[in-house]
Protein backbone atom coordinates (compact mmCIF):
# COMPACT_ATOMS: atom_id res chain seq x y z
CA UNK A 1 0.00 0.00 0.00
CA UNK A 2 2.57 2.48 1.15
CA UNK A 3 4.92 1.58 -1.67
CA UNK A 4 2.28 2.30 -4.26
CA UNK A 5 1.52 5.82 -3.22
CA UNK A 6 4.67 7.52 -4.50
CA UNK A 7 4.14 5.83 -7.84
CA UNK A 8 0.70 7.35 -8.21
CA UNK A 9 2.17 10.67 -7.20
CA UNK A 10 4.92 10.40 -9.77
CA UNK A 11 2.40 9.59 -12.45
CA UNK A 12 0.27 12.54 -11.51
CA UNK A 13 3.26 14.84 -11.44
CA UNK A 14 4.34 13.63 -14.84
CA UNK A 15 0.97 14.42 -16.31
CA UNK A 16 1.04 17.85 -14.76
CA UNK A 17 4.51 18.69 -15.93
CA UNK A 18 3.69 17.40 -19.38
CA UNK A 19 6.24 14.62 -19.36
CA UNK A 20 3.48 12.21 -20.19
CA UNK A 21 1.68 13.71 -23.16
CA UNK A 22 -1.63 15.36 -22.32
CA UNK A 23 -3.78 16.22 -25.29
CA UNK A 24 -4.61 19.93 -25.34
CA UNK A 25 -6.06 20.28 -28.82
CA UNK A 26 -7.84 17.54 -30.71
CA UNK A 27 -9.11 18.30 -34.19
CA UNK A 28 -10.90 15.57 -36.11
CA UNK A 29 -12.23 15.85 -39.67
CA UNK A 30 -12.71 19.58 -39.34
CA UNK A 31 -14.44 21.10 -42.34
CA UNK A 32 -15.64 24.64 -42.93
CA UNK A 33 -17.53 25.83 -45.96
CA UNK A 34 -18.48 29.34 -46.98
CA UNK A 35 -21.49 28.74 -49.20
CA UNK A 36 -20.31 26.20 -51.74
CA UNK A 37 -16.66 27.02 -51.19
CA UNK A 38 -14.68 24.72 -48.91
CA UNK A 39 -12.11 26.79 -47.02
CA UNK A 40 -10.92 23.97 -44.75
CA UNK A 41 -11.36 20.32 -45.61
CA UNK A 42 -11.26 17.39 -43.14
CA UNK A 43 -8.37 18.52 -40.97
CA UNK A 44 -7.22 16.06 -38.34
CA UNK A 45 -4.40 16.87 -35.95
CA UNK A 46 -3.60 16.90 -32.24
CA UNK A 47 -1.45 19.01 -29.98
CA UNK A 48 0.03 17.73 -26.76
CA UNK A 49 0.52 20.11 -23.88
CA UNK A 50 3.70 22.11 -24.35
CA UNK A 51 3.85 21.58 -28.08
CA UNK A 52 4.37 24.35 -30.60
CA UNK A 53 2.53 23.36 -33.73
CA UNK A 54 2.93 25.34 -36.94
CA UNK A 55 0.19 25.56 -39.52
CA UNK A 56 2.20 26.36 -42.60
CA UNK A 57 0.50 27.35 -45.80
CA UNK A 58 0.23 30.01 -48.50
CA UNK A 59 -2.37 32.80 -48.49
CA UNK A 60 -5.89 31.46 -48.62
CA UNK A 61 -4.86 28.05 -47.31
CA UNK A 62 -7.41 28.20 -44.50
CA UNK A 63 -5.09 29.03 -41.57
CA UNK A 64 -7.14 31.94 -40.24
CA UNK A 65 -10.39 30.04 -40.69
CA UNK A 66 -8.96 27.11 -38.71
CA UNK A 67 -7.73 29.28 -35.87
CA UNK A 68 -11.03 31.14 -35.68
CA UNK A 69 -12.91 27.87 -35.34
CA UNK A 70 -10.50 26.65 -32.65
CA UNK A 71 -10.94 29.93 -30.74
CA UNK A 72 -14.75 29.50 -30.83
CA UNK A 73 -15.09 32.62 -32.98
CA UNK A 74 -16.84 31.05 -35.94
CA UNK A 75 -18.65 27.75 -36.36
CA UNK A 76 -17.50 24.66 -38.19
CA UNK A 77 -19.48 22.91 -40.88
CA UNK A 78 -18.56 19.44 -39.63
CA UNK A 79 -16.00 17.51 -37.62
CA UNK A 80 -15.03 17.96 -34.00
CA UNK A 81 -12.70 20.25 -32.08
CA UNK A 82 -11.78 19.78 -28.44
CA UNK A 83 -9.60 22.15 -26.41
CA UNK A 84 -8.51 20.49 -23.18
CA UNK A 85 -11.55 18.39 -22.37
CA UNK A 86 -13.97 20.98 -23.72
CA UNK A 87 -16.00 20.97 -26.91
CA UNK A 88 -15.96 24.14 -29.04
CA UNK A 89 -19.49 23.60 -30.29
CA UNK A 90 -20.97 23.58 -26.79
CA UNK A 91 -22.02 27.08 -25.68
CA UNK A 92 -20.89 26.79 -22.07
CA UNK A 93 -17.67 25.01 -23.04
CA UNK A 94 -16.94 27.72 -25.62
CA UNK A 95 -17.06 30.37 -22.90
CA UNK A 96 -14.61 28.34 -20.76
CA UNK A 97 -12.35 27.76 -23.75
CA UNK A 98 -12.17 31.46 -24.53
CA UNK A 99 -11.15 32.10 -20.96
CA UNK A 100 -8.20 29.68 -21.12
CA UNK A 101 -6.83 30.68 -24.52
CA UNK A 102 -4.99 33.70 -25.85
CA UNK A 103 -5.23 34.91 -29.43
CA UNK A 104 -2.86 36.99 -31.51
CA UNK A 105 -5.22 37.76 -34.42
CA UNK A 106 -4.07 38.44 -37.97
CA UNK A 107 -4.91 42.14 -37.49
CA UNK A 108 -3.67 43.67 -34.26
CA UNK A 109 -7.06 45.29 -33.53
CA UNK A 110 -5.98 47.58 -30.71
CA UNK A 111 -7.75 50.77 -29.64
CA UNK A 112 -5.58 53.47 -31.18
CA UNK A 113 -6.67 56.32 -28.92
CA UNK A 114 -6.00 54.35 -25.74
CA UNK A 115 -2.56 53.80 -24.26
CA UNK A 116 -0.79 50.45 -24.42
CA UNK A 117 -1.45 50.06 -20.71
CA UNK A 118 -5.16 50.90 -21.01
CA UNK A 119 -5.55 48.44 -23.89
CA UNK A 120 -4.02 45.60 -21.88
CA UNK A 121 -5.94 46.53 -18.74
CA UNK A 122 -9.22 46.49 -20.64
CA UNK A 123 -8.58 43.05 -22.12
CA UNK A 124 -7.31 41.61 -18.84
CA UNK A 125 -10.57 42.65 -17.23
CA UNK A 126 -12.61 41.20 -20.06
CA UNK A 127 -10.77 37.94 -19.35
CA UNK A 128 -11.93 38.20 -15.73
CA UNK A 129 -8.32 38.07 -14.59
CA UNK A 130 -7.65 39.11 -10.94
CA UNK A 131 -6.75 42.81 -10.81
CA UNK A 132 -3.53 42.48 -8.82
CA UNK A 133 -2.06 39.74 -11.01
CA UNK A 134 -3.21 41.65 -14.06
CA UNK A 135 -1.16 44.69 -13.06
CA UNK A 136 1.86 42.45 -12.45
CA UNK A 137 1.45 40.73 -15.81
CA UNK A 138 1.01 43.96 -17.74
CA UNK A 139 4.23 45.24 -16.24
CA UNK A 140 6.02 41.94 -16.84
CA UNK A 141 5.10 41.68 -20.51
CA UNK A 142 5.49 45.35 -21.36
CA UNK A 143 8.97 45.20 -19.84
CA UNK A 144 9.77 41.94 -21.59
CA UNK A 145 8.75 43.47 -24.92
CA UNK A 146 10.62 46.68 -24.26
CA UNK A 147 7.51 48.86 -24.16
CA UNK A 148 7.33 49.77 -20.48
CA UNK A 149 8.56 53.33 -20.92
CA UNK A 150 5.94 53.86 -23.64
CA UNK A 151 3.09 52.35 -21.70
CA UNK A 152 1.12 55.60 -21.41
CA UNK A 153 1.37 56.61 -25.06
CA UNK A 154 -1.58 56.00 -27.36
CA UNK A 155 -1.13 52.83 -29.39
CA UNK A 156 -2.01 54.84 -32.52
CA UNK A 157 1.41 56.49 -32.27
CA UNK A 158 3.23 53.13 -32.30
CA UNK A 159 5.11 51.52 -35.16
CA UNK A 160 3.80 48.32 -36.69
CA UNK A 161 6.27 46.19 -34.74
CA UNK A 162 5.39 47.86 -31.45
CA UNK A 163 1.69 47.35 -32.07
CA UNK A 164 2.26 43.70 -32.78
CA UNK A 165 4.17 43.41 -29.52
CA UNK A 166 1.22 44.94 -27.67
CA UNK A 167 -1.04 42.47 -29.44
CA UNK A 168 1.20 39.65 -28.23
CA UNK A 169 1.14 41.04 -24.68
CA UNK A 170 -2.64 41.18 -24.89
CA UNK A 171 -2.74 37.49 -25.72
CA UNK A 172 -0.60 36.79 -22.66
CA UNK A 173 -1.89 39.07 -19.87
CA UNK A 174 -4.39 36.54 -18.56
CA UNK A 175 -1.87 33.69 -18.45
CA UNK A 176 -3.61 31.47 -20.99
CA UNK A 177 -2.78 27.77 -21.19
CA UNK A 178 -3.14 27.65 -24.94
CA UNK A 179 -2.04 30.30 -27.41
CA UNK A 180 -3.12 30.87 -30.97
CA UNK A 181 -1.03 33.14 -33.14
CA UNK A 182 -2.12 34.08 -36.61
CA UNK A 183 0.96 35.08 -38.61
CA UNK A 184 2.44 37.11 -35.74
CA UNK A 185 5.54 38.16 -37.66
CA UNK A 186 3.97 38.85 -41.06
CA UNK A 187 4.97 42.23 -42.53
CA UNK A 188 7.20 43.14 -39.60
CA UNK A 189 10.70 44.51 -39.78
CA UNK A 190 13.32 41.82 -39.07
CA UNK A 191 14.12 43.13 -35.61
CA UNK A 192 10.52 43.16 -34.39
CA UNK A 193 10.01 39.74 -35.97
CA UNK A 194 13.00 38.42 -34.07
CA UNK A 195 11.74 39.80 -30.75
CA UNK A 196 8.41 38.11 -31.31
CA UNK A 197 10.05 34.81 -32.26
CA UNK A 198 12.25 34.98 -29.18
CA UNK A 199 9.21 35.44 -26.97
CA UNK A 200 7.54 32.47 -28.62
CA UNK A 201 10.65 30.39 -27.93
CA UNK A 202 10.54 31.52 -24.28
CA UNK A 203 6.90 30.48 -24.11
CA UNK A 204 7.83 27.14 -25.58
CA UNK A 205 10.33 26.67 -22.77
CA UNK A 206 7.55 27.49 -20.31
CA UNK A 207 5.70 24.51 -21.72
CA UNK A 208 2.78 26.44 -23.16
CA UNK A 209 0.76 24.95 -25.94
CA UNK A 210 0.96 27.09 -29.05
CA UNK A 211 -0.65 26.92 -32.46
CA UNK A 212 1.24 29.17 -34.84
CA UNK A 213 -0.02 30.14 -38.28
CA UNK A 214 2.68 31.12 -40.67
CA UNK A 215 3.55 31.24 -44.32
CA UNK A 216 7.20 31.53 -43.39
CA UNK A 217 8.89 28.19 -43.66
CA UNK A 218 12.05 29.24 -41.91
CA UNK A 219 10.05 30.53 -38.96
CA UNK A 220 8.06 27.29 -38.69
CA UNK A 221 11.27 25.29 -38.84
CA UNK A 222 12.94 27.32 -36.11
CA UNK A 223 10.07 27.58 -33.67
CA UNK A 224 7.82 24.56 -34.04
CA UNK A 225 8.04 21.02 -32.69
CA UNK A 226 5.74 19.90 -35.44
CA UNK A 227 4.50 21.39 -38.67
CA UNK A 228 1.28 20.82 -40.54
CA UNK A 229 1.45 21.83 -44.19
CA UNK A 230 -1.98 23.22 -45.03
CA UNK A 231 -3.63 23.94 -48.32
CA UNK A 232 -7.33 23.59 -47.62
CA UNK A 233 -6.39 20.04 -46.59
CA UNK A 234 -3.53 19.01 -44.36
CA UNK A 235 -0.96 17.77 -46.82
CA UNK A 236 1.57 16.58 -44.27
CA UNK A 237 2.04 16.67 -40.51
CA UNK A 238 5.39 15.89 -38.97
CA UNK A 239 8.44 17.22 -37.18
CA UNK A 240 10.56 19.61 -39.26
CA UNK A 241 13.29 16.94 -39.41
CA UNK A 242 10.98 14.21 -40.65
CA UNK A 243 9.41 16.50 -43.18
CA UNK A 244 12.89 17.23 -44.48
CA UNK A 245 13.49 13.52 -44.94
CA UNK A 246 10.20 13.09 -46.76
CA UNK A 247 11.70 14.39 -49.96
CA UNK A 248 15.34 14.99 -49.54
CA UNK A 249 15.96 18.10 -51.50
CA UNK A 250 19.51 18.51 -50.26
CA UNK A 251 21.96 18.89 -53.07
CA UNK A 252 25.71 18.64 -53.30
CA UNK A 253 27.18 21.32 -55.50
CA UNK A 254 30.57 20.53 -57.05
CA UNK A 255 32.58 23.23 -58.80
CA UNK A 256 35.00 21.92 -61.43
CA UNK A 257 37.90 23.40 -63.35
CA UNK A 258 36.26 22.28 -66.50
CA UNK A 259 33.08 20.42 -67.37
CA UNK A 260 32.71 17.78 -70.07
CA UNK A 261 30.37 14.99 -71.13
CA UNK A 262 32.65 12.28 -69.81
CA UNK A 263 32.42 13.65 -66.27
CA UNK A 264 28.69 14.13 -66.59
CA UNK A 265 28.29 10.57 -67.83
CA UNK A 266 30.32 9.22 -64.92
CA UNK A 267 28.13 11.08 -62.41
CA UNK A 268 24.92 10.00 -64.13
CA UNK A 269 26.22 6.44 -64.13
CA UNK A 270 25.94 6.39 -60.32
CA UNK A 271 22.19 7.04 -60.63
CA UNK A 272 21.79 9.88 -58.19
CA UNK A 273 18.30 11.38 -57.65
CA UNK A 274 19.02 14.38 -59.87
CA UNK A 275 21.84 15.98 -61.81
CA UNK A 276 21.89 19.57 -62.98
CA UNK A 277 24.70 21.52 -64.54
CA UNK A 278 25.34 25.23 -64.71
CA UNK A 279 28.59 26.20 -66.42
CA UNK A 280 31.35 24.47 -64.48
CA UNK A 281 28.99 23.70 -61.62
CA UNK A 282 27.29 20.39 -61.15
CA UNK A 283 24.49 20.00 -58.60
CA UNK A 284 23.72 16.45 -57.53
CA UNK A 285 20.64 15.50 -55.56
CA UNK A 286 21.00 12.38 -53.43
CA UNK A 287 18.93 10.40 -51.00
CA UNK A 288 21.85 10.11 -48.58
CA UNK A 289 24.49 12.74 -49.38
CA UNK A 290 26.83 11.70 -46.54
CA UNK A 291 27.24 8.24 -48.02
CA UNK A 292 26.98 9.04 -51.74
CA UNK A 293 29.10 12.19 -52.07
CA UNK A 294 32.52 10.43 -51.82
CA UNK A 295 31.55 7.99 -54.60
CA UNK A 296 30.49 10.88 -56.84
CA UNK A 297 33.75 12.72 -56.23
CA UNK A 298 35.75 9.57 -56.94
CA UNK A 299 33.86 9.10 -60.22
CA UNK A 300 34.54 12.70 -61.25
CA UNK A 301 38.22 12.49 -60.41
CA UNK A 302 38.73 9.12 -62.15
CA UNK A 303 37.14 10.48 -65.33
CA UNK A 304 39.69 13.32 -65.34
CA UNK A 305 37.75 16.07 -63.61
CA UNK A 306 39.48 18.57 -61.33
CA UNK A 307 37.40 19.48 -58.29
CA UNK A 308 37.67 23.07 -57.07
CA UNK A 309 35.14 22.96 -54.27
CA UNK A 310 32.30 20.90 -52.84
CA UNK A 311 29.38 22.44 -50.97
CA UNK A 312 25.85 21.58 -49.94
CA UNK A 313 22.64 23.54 -50.45
CA UNK A 314 20.46 22.98 -47.47
CA UNK A 315 17.13 24.77 -48.00
CA UNK A 316 15.64 21.34 -48.05
CA UNK A 317 12.34 21.97 -46.33
CA UNK A 318 11.58 24.77 -48.72
CA UNK A 319 11.73 22.40 -51.66
CA UNK A 320 9.40 20.02 -49.91
CA UNK A 321 7.05 22.76 -48.96
CA UNK A 322 6.85 24.17 -52.44
CA UNK A 323 6.53 20.70 -53.85
CA UNK A 324 3.74 19.77 -51.43
CA UNK A 325 1.84 22.98 -51.87
CA UNK A 326 2.02 22.87 -55.67
CA UNK A 327 0.75 19.32 -55.97
Amino acid sequence: MIAQEPKAWIYDRQSRTGETPVKMIEVANLTRKFGDFTAVDSLTFNLDRGEVFGLLGPNGAGKTTTVRILCCLISKTSGSVRIGDLDTSDRDDAMKIRKMIGLVPDNVGLYDTLSAYANLEFYGRMYEFPEKQLKENIEKYLKMLDLWDKKDLPVGSFSKGMRQKVSLARALVHDPEVLFMDEPTANLDPEAAKTIRDVILDLRRENRTILLNTHNLDEAQRICNRIGVLKTRLIAVDTPENLAKLVSGRKTVILLEEMNDRILGAVRGLNPRSVETDGNKIAVGMADPDRETPAIITAIVSSGGKVRSVSETGASLEDIYLQLVRE
Partner: peptide, 10 residues
Amino acid sequence: KSLEPLLATP
Protein backbone atom coordinates in the same frame (compact mmCIF):
# COMPACT_ATOMS: atom_id res chain seq x y z
CA LYS B 1 -10.39 45.56 -36.43
CA SER B 2 -10.80 45.22 -32.70
CA LEU B 3 -13.98 43.16 -32.86
CA GLU B 4 -12.12 39.87 -33.33
CA PRO B 5 -9.96 40.12 -30.19
CA LEU B 6 -12.99 41.42 -28.32
CA LEU B 7 -15.09 38.46 -29.43
CA ALA B 8 -12.23 36.15 -28.43
CA THR B 9 -12.66 37.14 -24.78
CA PRO B 10 -15.05 35.10 -22.62
